[in-house]
Nucleic acid binder design. Structure first.
Lengths: 337, 337
DNA sequence: ATGAAAGCGCTAACAG
DNA sequence: CTGTTAGCGCTTTCAT
């Protein structure tokens, strides 16, 4: 019922090793032998047994993908990312095993120790992620999505959040805006978890200084009421304000509503840019010029990094993907009124 | 570097098979031997090699989960489902391999032929899904999420959409409503793809008849404009209408807006129930009484079915999960004004 | 350029 | 209740 390598070998009149090498390309095979073997494989419908292959070759051709479960994660982004990982992995002849964060370090250790997978992709990396020591100790290659506090010895990839902050400011500066504000995440985000929020602030602040803009930063809780408060405060304290960068998905819509209710038209009086998923930016009443997390690209690149590591090739410790700003209806040249 | 079963055997002073049987429980082991073996396993940190196990035991302990990619799928629902499958699978000592619909039938055949997985979970099943013949032919157990036109010989599971339609009507009937309408999906949905839309209509219509309610069904395109049109038409043609069931996520919010703009208060003048994800129902201006797809339960049950099949136990061909209605602010007793 | 043969680490008869 | 042993199907030396 199952065709095995010896069946193919017999059918093609060669030895099993020749079939194996034809498949792996790990040693030269004459053109005619190769043709004969390939024909036999096709004819018999041969498929190498994954387990046997893993045992003999000590390579399972499976990657583990650890997906986050925490509240507050952006589900569509994770999903898009997962799909792109699977697609990219298949292009490199790898399959993808799905692990949940729930299993924690034990899960990682398990799939590593049982040789179920060859490598790991870990999403939702925290600044002081408890899994870091393990990942360093494991002899499996891994790549992390996000940057921990101490990335030395690890391979990390993510959007370049600092550049994202800069790009937003530069877009506003190019449109003639002179006073800008960053409306960010709730204060606690700047403390725990990941470092990306701070990086946005850095990029924002430095780009503003470089371009001679007046700038300020305003954390904001993830509630409409907080959005309203921040909007009012901004109008009071920065009457000359004409550009804002929003890095807080939850309040993007409420903020725009608040500004308009306070008499500021977007983009007539106020230009708005955001860091948020494209779906959100597109579907607002005023579609918002935004930078999204390039989930698909992150996934592809992560798999590529892993493939290189598995091949013993050198890879950069850190990869920061350049932000791409999509212009929509929420930004316009500063009116000279 | 790698601890193997013979190491454990030597350390515990038993044979490899005894270690194996201690682990699998496939034959009786004396309490003291078991204790000694377990102690050795712990001490040495032994983990059976997955590939070796799969080869010798012809069981990989991996399930394949095929996730859909089509536009129009509900991403959070898929994600929740995937997570629940992984969690449930782990509870049965199985891992989960992620496949995308993109790979199609070839992907299924591949993981089956290479013995990479023991069983398949297929989401997003269409009425005349091209994968059906393959799934029937494969000797791997599989379960499908959703019902094809001809489920004979397959194992299918999904929400009981017919009962969902009924429950909505009965809820409205119990609140004293006498004239109800179903606002459904765009016409094309009733033609192609899946059968669940028709089932909702059936349940709705029959329950209405059974309860002596006047009822009507209205397909609706997935646009705010269409929602408005349907709302207007309803008010014109069914002035006595006081209850609606909405089975169309995209227009739930626009519909409520339209009704209120037309002077109908929800739930004061009109009670609204829906089939939609809880997130949506909860976050509307008026939280809507709704029935959600029980993604978590579907995932758990799917894994359970598969586990039973793998154990050679009989399973029902079709499993329809009972709908659960969550009452929110959008339904109320019919005002006797 | 190809073949022969020795495992990879585990499971499951078979034997006692 | 436990041990012995023959593979599972493939990769990879080693040989030619």
């Amino acid at each position: 019922m199952m065709v095995k390598i010896t069946d193919v070998a017999r059918h093609a009149g060669v030895s099993p090793s020749t079939v194996s090498y034809t498949l792996s390309g790990k040693r030269p095979i004459s053109a005619e032998t190769r043709a004969r073997v390939e024909e036999s494989i096709r004819e018999l419908g041969y498929r190498p047994h994954a387990g046997a292959r893993a045992l003999a070759g000590s390579r399972s051709n499976v990657l583990a993908l650890v997906v986050p479960l925490r509240a507050g994660i952006n589900v569509p982004v994770v999903m898009r990312f997962a799909v792109s990982v699977v697609t990219a992995a298949r292009a490199h002849d790898q399959d993808v095993l799905l692990l949940t964060q729930e299993e924690g370090e034990e899960g990682l250790r398990r799939v590593a120790d049982t040789a179920l997978v060859d490598a790991l992709i870990v999403m939702d990396v925290q600044l002081h992620d408890p899994r870091l020591p393990l990942l360093r100790a494991l002899d499996l290659p891994s790549v992390m999505i996000g940057f921990p506090a101490e990335p030395a010895g690890l391979t990390c990839i993510d959007l370049d959040f600092r550049a994202a902050g800069e790009v937003c400011v530069e877009h506003l500066a190019a449109l003639g805006h002179r006073v800008v504000a960053l409306i960010g995440s709730p204060p606690e985000v700047y403390v725990r978890q990941t470092a990306f929020a701070q990086r946005v602030v850095q990029g924002f602040t430095e780009a503003a200084a470089r371009n001679g803009l007046r700038s300020s930063v305003h954390p904001c809780e993830a509630t409409p009421a907080a959005a309203r408060t921040v909007a009012e405060q901004l109008l009071r304290e920065q009457p000359a304000l004409t550009g804002v960068v929003v890095h807080n998905e939850a309040v993007l819509e409420p903020l725009i509503d608040a500004f308009e209710q306070l008499g500021l038209r977007v983009p007539g009086d106020l230009s708005v840019t955001a860091l948020c998923p494209d779906e959100l930016a597109e579907h607002l009443r005023v579609p918002v010029t935004s930078i999204a997390i390039p989930s698909t690209e992150v996934g592809e690149r992560a798999v590529e990094l892993l493939t290189r590591k598995l091949a013993g090739l050198p890879v950069p410790d850190t990869t920061r993907l350049p932000p791409r700003l999509t212009e929509r209806a929420s930004t316009a040249r500063r009116s000279l009124a």
